[in-house]
Each structure stands twice: as structure tokens, then as C-alpha cells.
Design a protein around this nucleic acid. Structure first.
Length: 272
DNA sequence: ACATTGACCTGGGAGC
DNA sequence: TGCTCCCAGGTCAATG
């Protein structure tokens, strides 16, 4: 479900309720996520203060006194702040009860996400150590992306979705950014011109910033931490618009499959 | 080293 | 109504 704007929207929604607060208890009803939720996590985390909540790539990091709780929402995960007596649904697998009468609840039907704990520096954690730069940081720029793409035969779409090159760009925003930059998604990364590459970097930053302003994209089940949808779906140019007219040139939007993911583009505006 | 594919899991919608 | 098939916002692990 969530790409960078949705994860960051979730972080901002939860932050005021949890920072500086103490965890009364954690309840885990299902441990079978991508990796099993660690044994005794409930005991480790009980009574700890949450110092800050940060985001790295699509990971949410709850900085506690003796370590960091790492949560990934996978494809269908959702974190909400609720009153601590809220009804518990079928896919409400993890609850973190806070000392202000609220509960942070993880709902995840598909359980592709993760709930992990580390006492080491998260930068050294196996899942985080090899991640590329944040797309909205200055480290992600045209020179950098050109260097990373040099000599690569893989498609430009797979390169911008590769978390070791740049994080946070998932299928929706990869499609949208390539459209805004006028680049065919199946173009070999190493063959994208210098000018187009600069356009692509700017397009990625722009689309992520605008999506963040809109509170993310709600296609089906993404909801902000307060339960309301994000509104960026209204601003999508190509994603999910197969056969509908291009908003620039009226050509019907094409849909192909790349690495088993739907890829939408305008064959007129994004020539190969 | 790099590139592609399968796997994990559930729910919803299309088609019969 | 109910069955089967395909699809879905991610990404690690295995394979070529």
C-alpha cells in the first residue's frame, strides 16, 4: 500500500500522540509477518518511553530508551491512533497502548510488513544498512542518478524503484514521475540522456512533495492515522488510467507489465 | 556484479 | 450464489 508519502503521512499523524509518551503495554495477536515478530517484544517494550518517531525509506522508527521499534507497512499495513477501548477487528494484529488513553494499532490483512526490534544503531541494521538516499534530500540529484544508472541495462523504472539507489519510490510514483519527465518506463537506464535524467529527479521530488501535501494516495485501503483518506489519487496522470485520454495529448494511456507490476504511460508523451 | 523471477498473504472484483 | 482466476501501494531470496 504505502510509498513514501503515505508512510510519512502516517508518521506525522501519529507523532503528536506518541512522542515523549510511555508505552503501557504491547499486545500482539498474530506474530506471522514477513519475519516473525520477536519473542518477548511485549516484555522488552513495556514501560519504555518513545523519545521520537522517525522515518527512513518506508520504515517507521520508534526510538525508545533501550532500542528502536522498526515497523514496515508492507502492501496493506496501516497504523492508526485510536481510543484504547476501540473494537478490535480481524486484521488488527498489534496494539501499542500509550499512557494517554490512546492505542497505536497496526492493521495488516496481508502481513507483508514487519515489526522488529533492534538495540543497535539502525543505520547498521541489516534491512537499513544498504538503503540509498532519501529522494527529497540533496544527496539525490541528477549527477548521482546518472552515476548510478551508468552502464545499466535494466529499465529506468526498475532503477528508480530500487531501494539501494533511491528509497521511497514505489509503483504509483515511479509511473507518475516518468510521465512528468517524458521518459518511457522501459528505456534502459544507462541510455537516458543527461537532460531527461535531471527532469526525472525533479519529477520524483515534485510528485512526492505534492502527494505529501495531499496526505498521500488512497486507492483502496490507505487511510491516514486519523482514518481519513489521502487525496492525491485525484492528481494522478497515468496510474490506473489505462485507455483513458492522456491529460496532455489525449492519446489513450497504455498499460504494460514490467517485473509483474502494472506500468502505465503515454506512448506519445513518453517516446522510447 | 547485475538482472529477472518467485515467494510471502488476504481480499476484492471480473467472468462463468 | 458460488467457484476460479487475476490483481493489488513491497522487497527479500533464489536463480540465471
Amino acid at each position: 500500500m504505502p510509498e513514501l508519502p503515505e508512510v510519512e503521512t502516517t508518521r506525522r499523524g501519529i507523532q503528536p500522540y506518541v512522542e515523549g509518551r510511555t508505552i503501557i503495554k504491547m499486545v500482539i495477536r498474530h506474530r506471522g509477518f514477513r519475519w516473525p515478530i520477536p519473542d518477548q517484544l511485549e516484555d522488552i517494550i513495556q514501560g519504555q518511553k518513545i523519545k521520537t518517531i522517525e522515518r527512513r525509506a518506508k520504515y517507521l522508527l520508534f526510538r525508545c530508551e533501550t532500542g528502536t521499534l522498526i515497523i514496515h507497512l508492507g502492501m496493506s499495513g496501516r497504523l492508526r491512533v485510536l481510543d484504547n477501548d476501540s473494537h478490535i477487528g480481524k486484521h488488527d494484529h498489534v496494539d501499542i497502548y500509550i499512557d494517554n488513553g490512546h492505542v497505536v494499532r497496526l492493521t495488516d490483512p496481508r502481513r507483508f510488513g514487519a515489526v522488529l526490534w533492534t538495540e543497535a544503531d539502525t543505520g547498521a541494521h541489516q534491512l537499513l544498512a544498504h538503503l540509498g538516499p532519501e529522494p527529497l534530500s540533496d544527496f539525490f540529484n541528477a549527477d548521482y542518478l546518472r552515476l548510478q544508472s551508468k552502464g545499466r541495462s535494466s529499465t529506468i523504472k526498475s532503477v528508480i524503484m530500487n531501494g539501494e539507489i533511491v528509497v521511497g519510490v514505489g509503483n504509483i510514483y515511479a509511473n507518475e514521475a516518468l510521465f512528468l519527465a517524458g521518459i518511457h518506463p522501459a528505456k534502459a537506464a544507462g541510455k537516458v540522456s543527461k537532460v531527461k535524467m535531471a527532469k526525472l529527479v525533479e519529477a520524483i521530488k515534485l510528485v512526492l512533495e505534492k502527494a505529501l501535501l495531499a496526505g498521500g494516495t488512497t486507492l483502496k485501503d490507505f487511510r491516514k492515522s486519523d482514518g481519513k483518506p489521502g487525496y492525491f489519487a485525484q492528481q494522478l496522470h497515468v496510474y490506473g488510467r489505462e485507455q483513458q485520454p492522456c491529460l496532455i495529448c489525449q492519446t489513450p494511456i497504455s498499460c504494460i507489465r514490467q517485473a509483474q507490476r502494472a506500468t502505465y504511460f503515454c506512448k506519445q508523451c513518453q517516446p522510447k
